Amino acid sequence: MRKVGETTLILDLASLEHNYNYLRSKIDFETKFLGVVKAFAYGSDMVTIAHKLEQLGADYLAVAYVSEGILLREAGIQLPILVLHPLASNFEDLIEHHLEPSLYSRNILNQFLEAANAKKQKDYPVHIKFNTGLNRLGFSEADVNFIAEETKRNECIKIVSCFSHLAASEDKNERDFSIDQINSFKNLSSNLMDKLGYAPMRHMLNTSGIINYPEAQFEMVRSGIGLYGYGNQAEIDAELKAVATLKTIISQIHEIGANQSVGYNRAFRSSHNIKSATLPIGHADGIGRQYGKGKGVVTINNKKAPILGNVCMDMIMVDVTEIDCKEGDEAIVFGTEKSAEKFASNAGTISYEILTAISQRVKRVVTGA
């Protein structure tokens, strides 16, 4: 792992390839694979990750919003791109850049039909989202006839997939709920296909679903967090490799006497003599205030250094009393040896949040290409 001279997010594409191959090994050869690259590819680098997934043989990509898909198209990505939460105000741009919308309600379907007809489209690829229990986005059983009738009446669109989302695929205590979701989706998709007279692809499994419910892989699976090295289960985490490592350096070391304070609001007060190190990373870089007061811990020279007091906008101060270190030494926030999941869990949150929070001002360096 390269040494850094500033706060840097190191992205290891060899680890991404390992994770992709591991997840692929859990599904049938003919099952298609969709890589989720929304939110700057879970806080990493969307364009770099998308190019690598395209090279590795992924069949589809998914983003949250149209603007993300446009960024990929402008970077030369040719794979089909599913937009998971398109907004009607962006439909003209979506069509112009050959992005594929998830249609999840009668209102959004009608608005897309209007846009597609205005653009004189024929058989434009769309995806139908069913709500089977997550209760976030999606059509219900009562909408199946409407979807089929509108699709048949309008030659401007063609349904290329229908899909749903498991709410608790990583939680074995919720297995009955997940099975109910899968069965509900089977019924909904079969009903739609019967009424359409053709069979779109079906997909429901996320990363944890791929591991725990391979019997429900249908024609395609979707993976987001697993590609970046996290499986929501300790035994799966052990099989994956963290793609992103967040490193920074020690800017200054202070000797703090007894009864002195550190940082804003004097949130840390020493009871004895200690040594603190200031690092150039803060909540403007994605290390939120919830990691302050000892909940966030970085690693310096293979030893733990808890955050002292409140996180500042551009800096944190950590306790290095028991660490042999000097100004310019590296500090690892998370990575291969200490996962983002572990760093996040100390503050009562999850790997998704810390990964996607990393600011775009943090330098990205790509390795393992």
Rank of each mutant, 00 (worst) to 15 (best):
T7I: 05
D12L: 05
L13D: 12
S15Y: 13
Y22S: 08
K38E: 13
F40P: 04
V47R: 03
Q55P: 00
G57A: 10
D59Q: 10
L61A: 07
L61C: 01
V63M: 04
V66L: 02
G69Y: 06
I70F: 06
L71D: 10
R73I: 11
R73Q: 06
Q78Y: 08
L79E: 04
L87S: 06
S102G: 11
S102M: 00
F112D: 11
Y124R: 10
Y124D: 03
Y124W: 06
F130A: 02
A142R: 12
N145G: 12
N145I: 11
E149K: 14
T151P: 11
K152I: 02
R153Q: 15
C156S: 15
S164Q: 07
S169C: 04
I182H: 03
I182A: 09
L188A: 12
L188Q: 09
L196C: 05
T207Y: 08
Y213I: 07
P214R: 13
A216C: 07
Q217L: 03
Q217W: 03
Q217C: 10
R222I: 02
G226W: 00
A242N: 15
L246F: 09
T248Q: 02
A258Y: 06
N259L: 13
Q260S: 10
Y264D: 10
N265K: 12
F268I: 09
F268M: 04
F268V: 11
R269Q: 13
S270Q: 02
S271F: 09
I274D: 02
I287K: 10
G292D: 12
K295A: 14
K295N: 14
N301C: 08
N301R: 15
N310A: 12
C312N: 13
M313K: 15
D314V: 01
M315T: 13
M315R: 15
D319A: 07
I323M: 01
D324P: 03
G328A: 10
F343H: 07
I350C: 07
S359I: 11
V365F: 03
V366G: 10
V366M: 07
T367N: 00
G368M: 12
